[in-house]
Structures are given as C-alpha cells and as structure tokens.
Design a protein around this nucleic acid. Sequence first.
DNA 1: CCCATCGGTCACCGACCGTGACCAGCCCCT
DNA 2: AGGGGCTGGTCACGGTCGGTGACCGATGGG
Lengths: 122, 122
Amino acid sequence: MTQQADFNVLTETCPSRTSLSRIANKWTAMVVIVLGAGRMRFGDLRAAVQGISPKVLTGTLRDLERDGLVARYAYAEIPPRVEYELTALGHTLHTPLHALGRWAEENIPEVLAAREAYDTLR
Amino acid sequence: MTQQADFNVLTETCPSRTSLSRIANKWTAMVVIVLGAGRMRFGDLRAAVQGISPKVLTGTLRDLERDGLVARYAYAEIPPRVEYELTALGHTLHTPLHALGRWAEENIPEVLAAREAYDTLR
DNA sequence: CCCATCGGTCACCGACCGTGACCAGCCCCT
DNA sequence: AGGGGCTGGTCACGGTCGGTGACCGATGGG
C-alpha cells in the first residue's frame, strides 16, 4: 500500500519540502519534461530547453543527479560527450511535471485574458 | 478533444512559459495546495503554509489573482478580514500541483538516500 | 597554424527571497 | 484618557539565486 507517510510539505522542517523546492522550479520542470523522451546529450538538452544557459543547465542537472532523478554518463572522448537520462525515480516525477507543463499550455489563453482584465482595471 | 495547441513551454517566447514560471514555484504550489481545501483568511493561510513571510504570501496571492487562479474578498471591518479562494481555473491547477506535493512526500526517502550516496562519494 | 567542437567554468550583475520593524484603524481594559 | 491588541499588510535592508558574456582544454581537420 502507498502508506500515508509522516511527511508533509507544509511543515517547515519536513525534508520533503527541500525536495518540493527543487522540483517546483521552471528549469527543473522543463529539463525533466524533455528528458522524458529518452537519453540525451548536454548540447541537445540545451537546444531543446530554449533559453537555458549552460551554467543553469549544469546546475539543474547536478541537483537532479544528486537527488537520484537523473543519471549522467560521461565518455572520455574528444570532443567530450556527456549524456543524461531519467532514472526510474525520475520517470515517476515526469508524470506530474508533464501534467504541469500541459496545464500551462492548455490554459494560457484564460490566464492571459485574466491578466489583461486585471491590469486594465487597476 | 483536448486540442494540441500552438503553445509550447519549451519555446522561449511562448506565453505559456511565463505561466509555467509562476506555477512551477514552491510557494505557489503550497498556497494552491492549501487553498484546495476551500476559502481561507490571510492569517490562516499564513499559518497553514508554515514559514512563509507575509510579504511573500501577499506577492504570491497577488500574482495568482492576476492570473485568474485565486479570488480575493476584502471586508471593510475592523480588524480587517480578507479571504482567498481558488477560482474554477485555479481548481484545475490544484490537481497537478497536489500531485507534485504528494510526489515529494512519497518519494522523499529515496531522494534522501540518493543524496547521501552522492555526497559520500564526492 | 589556427580554428571549430563540446561541455562545461568563472566573474560579474540584477532580481528575487527572507527578515525584522513598522503601520492604520477600532476595540477593550484600566 | 491612554495603552495594548487584533489583522493584513508595507518598507528598508541583505543575502542568495538566476542570467550574461568571456573563457577554457584537448584534439581533429583544413
């Protein structure tokens, strides 16, 4: 059974909150969404997640690797080749993050309309 | 059919990305999760989302209000009373964000183990 | 000899997050 | 009459984080 754990993200000191802080992040979400398609090289990832800087991509991937969500494969070639892949745990995270991305895409018309309404009357 | 929109969060200039940036955020996630339980006062919200400062809570709520996800009801009483509630659109966002929170709670043991393993060998 | 390729790192800068102090307005208590 | 409490904020201040542009090492190709 999926046991109801003693963890609660709303509790300030709960370790699950540190995890939420990391995954509830736009760059993390986009990287995980892209990696859902399969193993990918650093450069391809950078091209897929438009606008991400190498520094931020490196940092995001390292954090994901540390949390066991992404595996890193480095090949000692010249020029270097490094590939990234979701782990089994990472795949379970892909589902909710992908849903979040789809929500943003599907509901952006309503959001834009709400923003315009808000901005015009204040 | 849920039509495949022309929006793609991976595209740098797509407006859906501005929406993703806002919702893929730890404070936003926690506030929406809590508001899923129903209409709530500012002070109760602040107590429920442990550790959030009034400044950040105010800012988060205003952004959510602007995007049409939260409705604000202010009563001209002394002491003042202000209530917040998810809109219909906000409720559709509650589902994926709640899933994200649950993911964090359910998988934190594995994440903590991965972190420890990572930190010991580097 | 020099440039391109790839996966980064580094110094710098501005934006955002968190902290603590403070506010208005009316009530109640002394 | 004066002082404190209640609520939903705002403000000034710092530190941390994200973003930008320059640069790197090692090798293959022209």
